[in-house]
């Protein structure tokens, strides 16, 4: 499997400005579903608005978007439906927001997941990123707030980050519309299969847990051979997640 890493400058040449049309809330007849995930306070909704041309209100608050917002855009004749998920720190707990985000990425099976992170607080944001990469392998990291990062003298090696995470990384300042064209281009390439990701999987797991997860993963794969995220399902089963059990029973995954 080859991972094609696209940095910002590579993609902007490809970007076809005429091909972009913001669709606002018209989201019927779409070709691809794109999920938008991220921590609170990362400017996730600004990215959403920049992509769709909508003006969704966002406060400087965690937990602002409880209701799922949807919007759309058209790029190179393909229509994309964008779903804004609640901003959360994690996907492992039982709060309403987290369950909503978790279930959408897992059961909604988006064609691409955009993960918005604050470039100034990458380490904290990676907690959520690494969890999402256990669920889906079609994701792009939007390294937002690059303008602030520059002001704060935070330097990020985008290439290495992309290699480490195994997904494309697009630096952006959504407030000023910087990086949004590159993001759209990357999303379209992932959706069409031009970019194949090989996402990072969580490594630092204690050996007894790793062993249990392996045993369980093997059992799950025996029953569902084509499941891409058996490891995540094993994690969730070990947590006793009832939704997962229900979905496994009904075969909602495959």
């Amino acid at each position: 499997m080859e991972t094609k890493v696209n940095s910002a400058c590579e993609t902007c040449e490809h970007f076809n400005k005429e091909g972009l049309k913001k669709l606002g809330i018209q989201t019927d007849n779409f070709d691809f579903v794109v999920a938008l995930a991220g921590n609170p306070n990362t400017g996730k909704s600004t990215v959403f608005n920049a992509l769709t041309g909508l003006r969704q209100h966002t406060g400087n608050w965690p937990g602002k978007t409880v209701m799922r917002a949807e919007g759309g855009f058209e790029y190179n004749t393909n229509k994309y439906k964008l779903v804004d998920l609640p901003g959360t720190y994690s996907l492992l707990s039982t709060s309403e927001d987290e369950a909503a985000a978790r279930d959408f990425i897992l059961f909604g099976k988006p064609d691409v997941t955009i993960i918005v992170v604050d470039a100034n607080r990458l380490e904290r944001n990676l907690n959520l990123v690494l969890q999402i990469l256990e669920i889906t392998d079609k994701a792009v990291l939007c390294l937002n707030l690059m303008d602030e990062a520059k002001r704060n003298k935070v330097e990020i090696d985008v290439r290495t980050l992309s290699k480490d995470l195994g997904i494309p990384v697009v630096p952006a300042s959504a407030r000023f519309n910087k990086g949004i064209p590159e993001l759209i281009q990357t999303v379209s390439e992932i959706a069409s299969g031009q970019i194949v990701c090989k996402p990072h999987r969580i490594k630092n797991v204690p050996s007894n847990i790793e062993k249990a997860v392996r045993t369980l993963t093997a059992e799950i794969e025996k029953e569902f051979p084509n499941i891409p995220n058996s490891r995540w399902i094993a994690f969730r089963l070990l947590e006793g997640d009832k939704e997962i059990i229900k979905a496994l029973k009904s075969g909602e995954f495959v």
Partner: peptide, 9 residues
């Protein structure tokens, strides 16, 4: 829940 929240933060 409160323990999990602390960890997540």
């Amino acid at each position: 829940e409160s323990r999990r929240r602390l960890l997540d933060l």
